[in-house]
């Protein structure tokens, strides 16, 4: 069952079309990665889903209900972790989570329980009386998440939740994303860090110029754009190395040399690693290291959009 369906979603700001007939389905229980460079329409799409702005045309359905006619229902079932830390510095961690949870109608014991649970989930139970001004960037990000999950939403939208934090907090947050997913939450996850998306997302959509240009699992996306692989060989001394014999090895499509490194591009379907190694041994060229690299999401994104994700 799809928890969220976007159909021909369009948003115009004057003459500028930020989101252009975007159609997307997100199944319940997924961690859905939304990739797009700045200005691709990703944030506008998220803002429309989370109710910050209205769509110019098109339809957004959450759990089978149009959010245009069921805005309150939609907001009650969505938790938004904004890219910018949106907490009150004058309130303690507990008071921050309590305030946001209270907006969803939670009161009394239930509210207290949910707040404590959310703080425990993000690892801030022992700092519940502290003010965010005394928190590190990572702790603030975790508090930001706690504020979004205390009301136990079905769909959680996380917009760049790991920007500007230390690796430890980043790992904590990524683990939290997986745990939330195991607890039954569907998550829409956007990040500039491609490796994060590869690590946690089960389904990925690439958005460019307001449209979805590719969608699928990371394996499916990689297979869309390329059927080649690269082998990187680092040698002690490159003198005397002849490139032509390497190019005659079965499956090799091209060879490039940079310093003491040789990049050999081969057909994905041919296993020629042994033949390549044998060539270096036969020619008495000492190998320092050898690495086979498959295309990653970064190269997929670059190929599809013609620009890097951070552009």
């Amino acid at each position: 069952m799809n928890i969220l369906e976007l159909t021909k979603l369009t948003k115009k700001f004057g003459d500028f079309i930020a989101v252009d007939q975007l159609t997307l389905s997100i199944a319940e229980g997924e961690i859905f990665g939304l990739l797009g460079a700045n200005g691709a329409g990703k944030s506008t799409t998220i803002n429309m889903v989370s109710g910050l702005i209205r769509a110019t045309s098109g339809e957004i359905q959450l759990m089978g209900k149009s959010i245009t006619n069921n805005r309150h229902f939609a907001k009650m079932n969505i938790g938004v972790v904004p890219q910018d830390i949106a907490i009150y510095e004058d309130l303690t961690a507990y008071e921050n989570v309590k305030f946001f949870a209270g907006l969803y109608g939670l009161r009394g014991t239930k509210l207290d329980e949910q707040v404590k649970k959310a703080l425990e989930f993000v690892g801030l139970s022992d700092r519940h009386k502290s003010f965010p001004k005394n928190f590190s960037g990572g702790m603030k990000r975790r508090l930001n998440i706690a504020c979004a999950i205390a009301h136990q939403p079905k769909l959680i939208i996380m917009d760049e939740p790991t920007v500007g934090i230390d690796p430890q907090s980043r790992n904590y947050i990524l683990n939290s994303v997986r745990k939330l997913n195991e607890m039954g939450c569907t998550i829409i996850y956007t990040s500039h860090y491609m490796e994060e998306v590869e690590e946690v997302c089960s389904q990925i959509a690439i958005v460019d110029h307001g449209k979805v240009i590719a969608e699928g699992t990371k394996e499916q996306l990689k297979s869309i754009i390329t059927d080649t692989k690269d082998v990187w060989v680092e040698v002690k001394n490159i003198d005397g190395l002849k490139l032509e014999p390497i190019q005659t090895i079965n499956g090799v499509l091209g060879v490039e040399v940079s310093d003491n490194q040789i990049k050999i591009n081969s057909d994905m379907g041919v296993n020629n690693l042994n033949a390549i190694i044998q060539h270096f041994i036969t020619n008495q060229i000492e190998i320092h290291s050898i690495q086979e690299k498959e295309p990653n999401l970064e190269s997929v994104f670059l190929t599809l959009t013609g620009r890097s994700l951070r552009d």
């Binding site: 989370s50 805005r71 904004p82 949106a86 907490i87 009150y88 946001f100 907006l103 969803y104």
Partner: peptide, 14 residues
């Protein structure tokens, strides 16, 4: 400016 306004608008508050 603190971005809490936009955060609030994603809750049942309009």
């Amino acid at each position: 400016e603190n971005r809490t306004y936009f955060r609030l608008l994603s809750t049942p508050i309009n």
